[in-house]
Computed example of a mutant assay.
Amino acid sequence: MTKYVMWGSYCADVLEKRAPYRQAHLDGLAKQKEAGTLITIGPTKDLTKVFAIYEAPDEATVRQLVEADPYWQNGVWTEYDVLEWIQAL
């Protein structure tokens, strides 16, 4: 399968805004990880960006996962981009 990277941005008040959605967000990520679709995900230290690596059949699958996430649906993530990734090493 193809690997994809996702870069996104967090809203300005991320710590407060994510609180009601955090557990649902983490539960969904755990399911993606167990299924082997999500390789890794996490925020930058300054909590302005999010980075993820997915392994999926196509970009549309990754976009569906991102857009189904409570963080996207509730404005915690404000924008994102998905790019096909070539793992060199």
Rank of each mutant, 00 (worst) to 15 (best):
V62R: 02
T61Y: 12
Y80R: 01
E79L: 06
E79A: 15
E79H: 14
Y4V: 04
V82E: 03
T37H: 06
T78A: 02
T2Q: 07
D81N: 13
L38V: 07
N74Q: 09
G75V: 05
A56H: 09
F51K: 08
L26T: 10
L15S: 04
V76T: 01
D46A: 12
P20V: 03
L65P: 08
K45D: 14
W85T: 11
E84P: 09
P43S: 15
K45G: 15
G36Y: 06
L38N: 10
D13V: 07
T61N: 03
N74V: 12
C11G: 09
P70M: 13
G8W: 02
K33A: 07
E84K: 15
E67A: 13
G8V: 02
I39F: 06
Y4W: 11
G42F: 10
V82P: 02
S9G: 11
V62M: 03
D58E: 13
E16M: 01
A88H: 15
A19Q: 12
R18A: 02
K17C: 04
V62I: 05
W85K: 08
I39Q: 06
I53F: 03
A30P: 01
W77C: 01
L65Y: 15
E59W: 00
K31D: 11
V50S: 15
C11A: 14
V5R: 01
A60P: 00
W7T: 14
E16I: 02
A35V: 00
L89R: 06
G42A: 07
T48M: 11
W72S: 12
P43K: 05
Y4C: 09
R22Q: 06
I41E: 05
T78D: 00
L89F: 11
M6F: 01
T37Q: 12
G42L: 03
W85F: 15
N74A: 09
D81H: 11
G75K: 04
Y10C: 04
V82W: 00
K31H: 10
A19W: 02
V5L: 10
L47P: 00
L15E: 03
A19R: 13
Y21N: 07
Y10D: 04
A60D: 06
C11W: 10
L29M: 14
P70R: 11
A12V: 13
K3C: 06
W85Y: 15
L26V: 14
N74M: 06
Y71T: 03
A30Q: 05
A60Y: 00
W85G: 10
G75H: 01
W72R: 12
K49Q: 15
T78V: 05
Y4G: 08
E34N: 14
D69S: 12
Q87C: 07
V82M: 00
T44K: 03
A56T: 08
E16F: 01
P43E: 11
K3P: 01
W7K: 15
K49E: 12
T37A: 06
G42Q: 11
A19H: 09
T37N: 09
P57C: 08
R18K: 10
V5D: 00
R63I: 08
Y80G: 05
E34C: 08
T44R: 12
W85Q: 08
